[in-house]
């Protein structure tokens, strides 16, 4: 069996156009079948299922992660919403409480002020009455003292006591002025 390096048409002559040289067909067909079947088996049995699994598992994982992220985002949103609601409630409560307390305190203070004022008023009136009584009492004393003094002065000056009625008139007259 000779190993030919050039494929030539039988019977010599000039070389045929290689793609149409039928002598090479059998070898090419045989090796094409071997190569193609080998490649087909490798791809169909091993490579394609493996690549398919890789892609599927990746998309599964991505979908899973996206779903988880969505879930987490939702729970975050609800947490934020509850937080804000609670915050608003607390603020309202605080405001209400503050208002109530302020009102109560103000009412209390007002009441105390009123009672205090009333008491003071009473005390003032009582004091005024006492003053007036004391004053009238004093005035009455002044009358008597003035009369006594006037009688004593007149007696010393004139040597004789003046009639009581004249003295009383004169004192009343002076005090009136």
């Amino acid at each position: 069996m000779a190993t030919t390096t050039h494929t030539e048409v039988p019977g010599g002559g000039k070389p045929q156009f290689p793609p149409f040289n039928q002598q090479t067909f059998a070898s090419q067909l045989l090796w094409l079948v071997i190569a193609f079947v080998l490649l087909y088996l490798l791809m169909a049995r091993i490579a394609l299922p493996r690549v398919g699994r890789i892609i599927a598992s990746r998309s599964e994982q991505i979908a899973g992660h996206l779903g988880e992220a969505q879930k987490l985002k939702e729970s975050t949103d609800t947490a934020i919403a509850t937080y804000e609601k609670k915050l608003a409630d607390a603020r309202n409560n605080a405001q209400m409480l503050a208002g109530q307390t302020r009102d109560k305190l103000m009412a209390e203070a007002e009441g105390r002020r009123k009672t205090l004022e009333g008491e003071l008023h009473q005390k003032l009136e009582a004091a005024e009455k006492t003053i007036a009584a004391t004053k009238s009492a004093a005035m009455a004393n002044v009358h008597a003292i003035a009369k006594d003094a006037a009688a004593a002065i007149v007696e010393r000056l004139t040597g004789s006591p003046a009639p009581e009625k004249d003295i009383a008139d004169a004192v009343a007259d002076v005090l009136k002025r």
Binding site: M1, A2, T3, T4, T5, H6, T7, P15, F17, P18, P19, N21, Q23, T24, F25, A26, S27, Q28, L30, W31
Partner: peptide
């Protein structure tokens, strides 16, 4: 485009079979 035989394996039905 020439097909060159690397190893000639044999002949089947007058056709040359080779590793080309």
């Amino acid at each position: 485009f020439e097909i060159k035989n690397i190893v000639t394996l044999g002949h089947i039905g007058g056709q040359e079979i080779a590793f080309t």
